[in-house]
C-alpha cells in the first residue's frame, strides 16, 4: 500500500514541507514510502509521526522546534533523530516548541517558549531535544500556542506553560514552569489559545479567558475539540459551535453528523471528512487552507473573501486515512485505491 500526503495553506516558513515558501490554495501531493499516523502543526513547523516509529519534521527550525540540529529551516520532511534508537510513538506541537513521546514513555521537548511551555523549569526558554523528567503513560497530548495539557491513561491531568486567567489551573500562578498535576479522573481535554475544556464523568468545565458558557452532559458528547478561539462538539449526533465567529468559524448549529467520518480543527478553520472520502473546509481561509475561491483581491481582501462555508478541497477519489488542520494549513493522508 502506498500513502500520499496532500496539503495546502500557509507556507511562509516551509511548514508544508514542499521545498518552497509560497502559500498553496490547492492540495499538493507527495508520495511517501512510509505510513503517517499523526500530524502535529506548530505556528510555522510541522511534525508527522509514522507507523514505524519515525517523526518527520519540516518548516521553521530557527528555535530548534523541529528537533533537528543546526539548520534554521527544514524545507522538506526530514527524519528527527531517534534518541537512543527508540521508536517515537506520539507527537504534539505548540507555537515554537514540540513534544515527542517514545516507546519508553519518555517525553522529550524542543524549541522555544517564554511562558513555561517547555516544562523544564523556571527561565528555561530554549532547548534542543531534552527529556522532561518522569515516565509518561500518555493517553492524550493537547497543546495550544503557549500551554500544554497531558492526560494520562489513569485519568490524571498534567499541565504547564501559560496559565493566564487560570486557563490550566485556577489555583496556580500565571506561568506554570514544570509539569503540575491539575486534575484527576479526567476523560477528555481540549486546549484552545486562551481557554481549556475538561470533561469528567459527570461534568464539563471551561476555564480561562472566554465568553463560552455551556452546561453539557458529558454522556451526550461524542466529539469535542477547539480552534484557537472557539469550541466545537457533537451532542446527540448534531455538531454545535460556540465562541469567536469573526470569520465563519461558527457557520452551523445543529449540523447533522450523518456521513461524517472525522472532524479536525486548525487555528481558525475546520475540516470535515465525509464517508465518501471527500473533504470540505470552513472558517478563515486567507492562505488557501480552505481551498480556492474565485474572487481575487490579494492586496486587501474583505472578511467575506477570506471566509469559507464548507468548501470542498478533496473530491474523495482515493481513500482518506485521516485529516489534520493546522495554523492556516490543511493536511490529508490518502492511500491507493485497494
Amino acid at each position: 500500500m502506498n500513502y500520499y500526503l496532500l496539503r495546502c495553506g500557509s507556507n511562509g516558513k516551509y511548514q508544508l514541507g514542499l521545498g518552497d515558501d509560497e502559500d498553496k490554495d490547492h492540495l499538493v501531493e507527495e508520495k511517501l514510502n512510509w505510513e503517517p499516523s499523526k500530524i502535529a502543526c506548530g505556528g510555522n513547523h510541522t511534525l508527522v509521526l509514522s507507523t514505524d516509529g519515525y517523526i518527520y519534521g519540516c518548516g521553521d527550525n530557527s528555535k530548534g522546534q523541529c528537533g533537528i540540529d543546526d539548520v534554521p529551516v527544514v524545507p522538506n520532511l526530514t527524519a528527527v533523530p531517534k534518541v537512543g534508537g527508540s521508536d517515537w510513538t506520539d507527537v504534539a506541537a505548540g507555537w515554537q516548541f514540540s513534544l515527542l513521546l517514545n516507546e519508553n514513555r519518555e517525553l522529550w521537548v524542543c524549541g522555544e517558549g517564554f511562558s513555561g511551555e517547555l516544562g523544564l523549569g523556571k527561565k528555561m526558554y530554549q532547548t534542543k531535544l531534552t527529556k522532561i523528567p518522569g515516565i509518561w503513560d500518555i493517553d492524550q497530548i493537547e497543546t495550544s500556542i503557549h500551554s500544554v495539557m497531558i492526560k494520562l491513561k489513569g485519568g490524571q491531568l498534567y499541565g504547564w506553560g501559560n496559565n493566564r486567567k487560570g486557563l490550566l489551573n485556577l489555583d496556580s500562578d500565571r506561568i506554570i514552569w514544570e509539569p503540575q498535576l491539575i486534575d484527576e479522573q479526567v476523560k477528555q481535554v481540549s486546549l484552545a489559545r486562551s481557554f481549556s475544556v475538561v470533561v469528567k464523568e459527570g461534568s464539563l468545565s471551561v476555564k480561562g479567558k472566554t465568553d463560552i458558557q455551556c452546561k453539557l452532559d458529558p454522556k451526550e458528547i461524542s466529539f469535542l475539540s477547539t480552534m484557537w478561539s472557539s469550541l466545537h462538539f457533537i451532542e446527540k449526533n448534531k455538531l454545535h459551535s460556540m465562541g469567536n465567529n469573526s470569520h465563519g468559524q461558527i457557520f452551523y448549529d445543529g449540523l447533522s453528523v450523518e456521513n461524517i467520518e472525522q472532524i479536525s480543527l486548525g487555528s481558525e478553520h475546520g475540516l470535515i471528512l465525509y464517508a465518501n472520502h471527500s473533504v470540505s473546509a470552513w472558517g478563515w481561509g486567507e492562505h488557501g487552507n480552505c481551498g480556492q475561491k474565485p474572487i481575487e483581491n490579494k492586496d486587501r481582501p474583505t472578511d467575506e473573501q477570506v471566509t469559507y462555508s464548507l468548501n470542498e478541497i478533496y473530491n474523495g477519489s482515493r481513500p482518506v486515512k485521516f485529516i489534520q488542520g493546522g495554523c492556516a494549513t490543511s493536511w490529508i493522508v490518502v492511500s491507493d485505491v485497494s
Binding site: 481558525e268 495554523c327 492556516a328
Partner: peptide, 9 residues
C-alpha cells in the same frame, strides 16, 4: 509588541 496570529506570523 507582538502576539501570534493564526496564520503563523
Amino acid at each position: 509588541f507582538q502576539y501570534p496570529c493564526p496564520c503563523g506570523d
